[in-house]
């Protein structure tokens, strides 16, 4: 373990200005405030830099900046942040917690904002409420398989390409970058990733069309409409392809227009 007084490894970035959105509560107005970071190792992660800022603020008797974060391994989807106008910052396929300061230069000004979307109201500072995502999953983002009574796992062979495609979609971490990056505040990539994960698997076929219908309609209650900008795919830390949206649209259309009994037989 390194003691704090030891010479840090890596290059030091100096003289950073952080322009951070501060907002007291959901119903308060917010504003940018600027803070200075004199020096930070380029080995530090972006969130460790915010930890350093918060330590400094507490030291000065000021309130720390509120931001959501947890695993810091890019998998829990808790962290967010618009960094210089980009969801999760400048590194492609990387959540904010995995972004490191080596991607920045000394003397930079970095603008840090919360996700901006109607469906994600700001709670405080950089923290937003993403529970609309949970409402979408609750409406149909599952396979009905109550505990007990499942057949032996190898009785349901899954072709490797189907398993791989399902896994590609299932990697979604539910962070909301797709919504934040979308000019319409649409959640189509999030919703479609879950629809694709389950609808591509043999286990998901029984509820395939009811699932697509329920999830799309719940999504529409909260989020804007998709106009195929593709910003979501570019922002997604798991690089989920917008192909899944096409699949969801196809299943949704079938669910609305095809004969249900025919669908059930196919």
């Amino acid at each position: 373990m390194i003691e704090p007084h030891e010479t840090p490894h890596g290059t030091q970035l100096t003289n950073l200005t952080l322009t951070v959105w501060r907002q007291k509560g959901p119903n308060d107005g917010g504003a940018f405030e600027s803070y200075r970071i004199d020096s930070i190792s380029d080995e530090a992660s972006f969130l460790e830099m915010l930890d350093v800022l918060n330590e400094k603020l507490i030291g000065e008797g000021r309130e720390a900046v509120t931001f959501d974060h947890d695993c810091r391994e890019g998998i829990c989807g808790t962290c967010s942040l618009m960094i210089d106008g980009q969801a999760h910052g400048p590194q492609r396929g990387t959540a904010t917690c995995q972004l490191h300061m080596r991607k920045f230069e000394s003397n930079a000004t970095i603008v840090i904002e919360p996700w901006r979307a109607t469906a994600f109201p700001i709670i405080k500072d950089l923290m937003v409420d993403r529970s609309a995502f949970d409402r979408i999953i609750e409406s149909g983002g599952y396979i009905t398989a109550p505990t007990g009574g499942a057949p032996d796992a190898n009785l349901i062979p899954v072709a490797k390409p189907a398993a791989d495609a399902a896994m590609d979609a299932a990697q979604c971490i539910g962070c909301g970058a797709c919504v934040a990056a979308c000019p319409n505040g649409a959640a189509n990539l999030f919703t479609a990733a879950k629809v694709a994960h389950l609808n591509l698997l043999p286990q998901g076929q029984a509820e395939r069309y009811s699932r697509a219908e329920a999830m799309v309609e719940t999504m529409d209650e909260y989020f804007g409409s998709c106009t195929n900008h593709g910003e979501c795919e570019a922002a997604c830390p798991k690089e989920i392809s917008i192909d899944v949206i096409a699949l969801m649209n196809k299943d949704y259309r079938k669910a609305k227009f095809a004969n249900r009994k025919e669908l059930a037989r196919s």
Binding site: I143, A145, A150, A153, I156, P157, K160, H197, L201, G204
Partner: peptide
């Protein structure tokens, strides 16, 4: 039983080419 349950729920476990 856990593996059976999780497969029924749609967990995309790694597969061999034959689907097992």
């Amino acid at each position: 039983e856990i593996i059976d349950q999780m497969v029924a729920q749609g967990v995309p476990f790694a597969r061999e080419y034959g689907g097992l």
